[in-house]
Every structure is written in structure tokens, then in C-alpha cells.
Amino acid sequence: MMRVNVIAWDNGLGLSRHLRLLAGALRASGHDVTMTGLRRGNWRKLGRRIKLGTRNVWNHAFGDRGWARHDVNLLIEHIRPEFLPAARYNVLLPHPEWFLDSDRELLPRIDAVFAQTRHAIAIFEQLGQRVLYTGFTSEDRRDGAVPRERAFFHLAGRSQHKGTVRLLALWRKHPEWPRLTVVQNPKSATPGASAANIEHRIDYLDDAALQRLQNAHWFHLCPSETEGYGHYLVEAMGIGAVVLTTDAAPMNEFITSARGLLVACTRSGRQNLATTHYFDEAAMEQAVAQAIALSDADLARLGNAARTWFADNARAFPLRVDAALQALPH
């Protein structure tokens, strides 16, 4: 059993989900877990208070006698230097697309990198890091009581890197296609011309409403330009939906032709350490046509294969994380 401190920005979105899921996996393996969720603005203040030795914060991080309270810090996405002395080992779970120059400067102080995708292994090995593959997991959102339609769903959220604008523009060119429902955060949405077969929900949905929408659609469009992990994609697999995603790493680690539909793409550029990709419009048109033409048996086959992968991965994740922790020097 190890004393593990899981540290992440508690943003109420994907990172909060990461924080909770990782802590749960560690507890399932018998570890003593502390969750340190940082809110915007407060972590810099917290770091200053630790450096100044404010008693209650110092004790939280280092213990009553000033030595490292934790065996391991697990730092999600960014390296928080003010927490590094609080553990014997510091391990990073990075998202390459959000890995900053300031994080790179601190890499020598990291003992290991836990890679959430195979794609991330080579990226961080090239930076001279010891990398252990853990993968990750997502929430099980399946609700078999919700009737499922032969319609398309795209969960854009607040991200600007899910191909949403281009996807909506392409759908407007095809009034013959089935309905596309897009859920997008008002802070990042770009409203366009209305179309009879597009339902663009620029709104904050409660979790129950979102879960119902996820389960109500057979087809989930996930044409990400890049992903650190990709909860919206893996959640769709857990539902047993047919996922259409970009045929590029790391998206095609999750979706293969045996459990979804891949869309050819072109390289578009870089976002920090990640390569970004745009889906090819003609390839997307072909993939949508292929999806529409699938028989009920094909839908069940692809959906069941996706669900099986999701369940197998969920069972294996706590074991992989525990094995990676045990691989740290003792």
C-alpha cells in the first residue's frame, strides 16, 4: 500500500473526471489516496503559502514534522513545483497537447511518466523520460432503458479541437442526412446557419440530460484533431455506440475498423507536443454514408465490440496503474 496524492486542476470538466477516476482506481488497488483538486487562481496562492510555511498548508503537504507526507505525487497534465517536495516520487500523467514549456523545464524533477496512450510513450521517451504505460478509463454512461435512434451525436463541450465547426458546415451541405445533435458550451460555440437536420444545443445540460442524449444516438461523431485521452470518445464506446473518429493517433488506438469507423485525415500542425489532424471532408462523407447503410446486425456487432473493449479496459486500468506504481524504486 502506498500513500498517493493525486493532483489536478479541478475544472469541473475532463480534468475533474480524471482526478476522480484515478483516485478510484488507486483505492480499488488498496492505496491510501489524497485528492488535491486545484481551482483557478487558488493553486498559486497555495504554493506561496507552502513556501512560506503556513502551518495548516505545510502540514497538509508535508506532515507534522516537515518530511514528505506521500510516497507518490501523481500530477495530472501539468507539473506543480510547489508540491514536488511533498512526496518521495513525482510522477506525471501528461496530455501532450497541453504540455507547456514551463512543464518541460521541470521534467528533470519528475521520476517517471505514466502514459495514458501508446502515442504518448514515444513523445516522452524522446524527452529522456522513463515512461510506463497505464492507459486510462472513463465513466460507464450506458443506460439500456433509453431507446436508440439512427441519428448522429457530437459532444463538442468547450473544446476547440473536436472539428465541430467543419462538421457543422459539412452537415449543412447534406440536408438528406439524418439529424445531427451537437451539444456545445456557450463559451466556445460558434452559431451558424440553421438546418432542418441539425439540432445545435448551445447550452449547459445537467448530467442526466446529457447521459440520455448520449444513449439515444447510435452514431457518435468524434473527429478530434488531437486528444490527451478522449473521454467523450471512450464514453461513447462504453455506451455501445458506433463511433466515427479521426484515423490518427491517439484516436485510432481506441477505435479500429472492428469496433467503429475511421475517417481519413490530413496533418494540420502542432499543439505543444501533439500533432493535430483535420478530417478529410470527402472521407467524412464516405464514413457517414457507410454508417447510414449499416444493417441492424452490423450496428450490434460494432457496438458490442466497442462495449467489450471499454469493459476490458476498465477492469485492467487499476491493475496497470498499480503495476506502474510497484515498478517505482522502493
Rank of each mutant, 00 (worst) to 15 (best):
R270C: 04
L233F: 01
L132R: 03
S16R: 01
A287N: 10
H174L: 02
G47N: 05
H78G: 00
W98D: 13
R17N: 11
V165C: 04
R179E: 15
R44V: 12
R201F: 00
F124E: 05
A289Y: 04
R270S: 10
K173P: 00
A208G: 02
T117W: 02
P147H: 03
H78C: 03
L100D: 12
G47V: 03
V131A: 08
S29C: 05
W218R: 14
D111Q: 13
R142N: 12
P186M: 03
T190L: 14
A120K: 06
R307P: 04
L205M: 05
R44K: 09
L75V: 11
T137Y: 06
L22T: 13
G260H: 00
Q290G: 05
R141H: 04
R267N: 03
P96W: 11
G144I: 11
G260L: 01
R212M: 04
A314E: 00
A323K: 00
V288Q: 06
G157W: 12
N197S: 01
G269C: 07
A25Y: 00
C265D: 06
P318D: 01
R118L: 13
L38V: 06
I202R: 03
D280S: 11
F114E: 01
D247H: 05
P85I: 14
N215S: 00
P108K: 09
D32L: 11
D64S: 08
A274V: 05
A61W: 15
K162I: 06
R130K: 15
G228C: 07
Q129A: 11
K187G: 08
D203P: 00
P223F: 04
Q214S: 09
E225L: 05
F114W: 01
L261V: 14
S159P: 10
H60M: 13
S188R: 11
E149K: 15
Y204Q: 06
E139D: 15
M1G: 14
T246W: 13
V113W: 00
E149M: 13
H70K: 04
G157N: 11
R39N: 08
M1D: 08
N11Y: 03
G144E: 14
T256C: 09
G163R: 12
G47C: 08
D10Q: 06
L127E: 13
D322M: 05
G41K: 08
I110G: 05
S102V: 14
L100C: 08
R40L: 12
H161D: 13
P108H: 10
Q211N: 07
M284E: 03
H200L: 15
G238D: 12
I198K: 05
D64T: 12
N59L: 04
E149F: 09
L294M: 07
P191D: 13
S138A: 15
Y133E: 08
